[in-house]
Simulated assay, not measured.
Amino acid sequence: MMDDQHVNPFDDERHLFLALVNAAGQYSLWPAFREAPAGWRVVHGPDQRAACLAHIERVWLDLMPAAV
């Protein structure tokens, strides 16, 4: 079993997450304790990891990036 120091923050369901989107319409799951990277904006959360992933699956219907 892995200890807490080796858990990937993107997989650690004990934390809250954000759903982000960029100008090209691409979505990302992001830990809420980290600031969103430049060029990305929060569109859902903070919320549980599963809820953020469900939001992304609901709204990201076209996986092709938009022309920016």
Rank of each mutant, 00 (worst) to 15 (best):
A66F: 05
A51C: 05
G45Y: 01
D4E: 13
R34Y: 08
D3N: 15
G25L: 07
R14Y: 03
Q5I: 09
L63Y: 08
C52F: 03
E35W: 01
R34H: 12
L63E: 07
Y27W: 10
A38Y: 07
V59H: 07
P65F: 02
Y27I: 14
C52H: 04
M64W: 04
R58T: 13
H44N: 13
L18R: 04
A36N: 11
G25Y: 03
A50F: 00
C52A: 11
A38C: 11
L16N: 09
C52P: 05
A23C: 13
P31K: 09
Q26E: 12
P31Q: 09
Y27T: 13
P46V: 07
I56H: 00
Q5M: 12
L61D: 02
W30M: 09
M1P: 08
V21E: 07
F10Q: 12
E35H: 07
W60E: 08
A23K: 15
D3C: 14
E57G: 06
G45A: 04
A36Q: 15
F33A: 12
L16C: 03
E57I: 02
A32V: 00
C52T: 11
D12W: 06
G25M: 08
C52W: 04
W60V: 12
E13G: 02
G39M: 08
R41L: 10
M64A: 10
N22L: 03
M1A: 11
W60D: 10
H55R: 15
Q26C: 08
C52L: 06
E13K: 07
E35R: 10
Y27Q: 11
Q26W: 01
E57W: 02
A38W: 04
P46T: 10
F10W: 15
M64V: 04
H44V: 00
P9F: 03
V43A: 01
N8E: 05
W30G: 06
L53W: 01
R34W: 09
G39Q: 08
D47A: 15
L20Y: 00
A24N: 15
A66N: 10
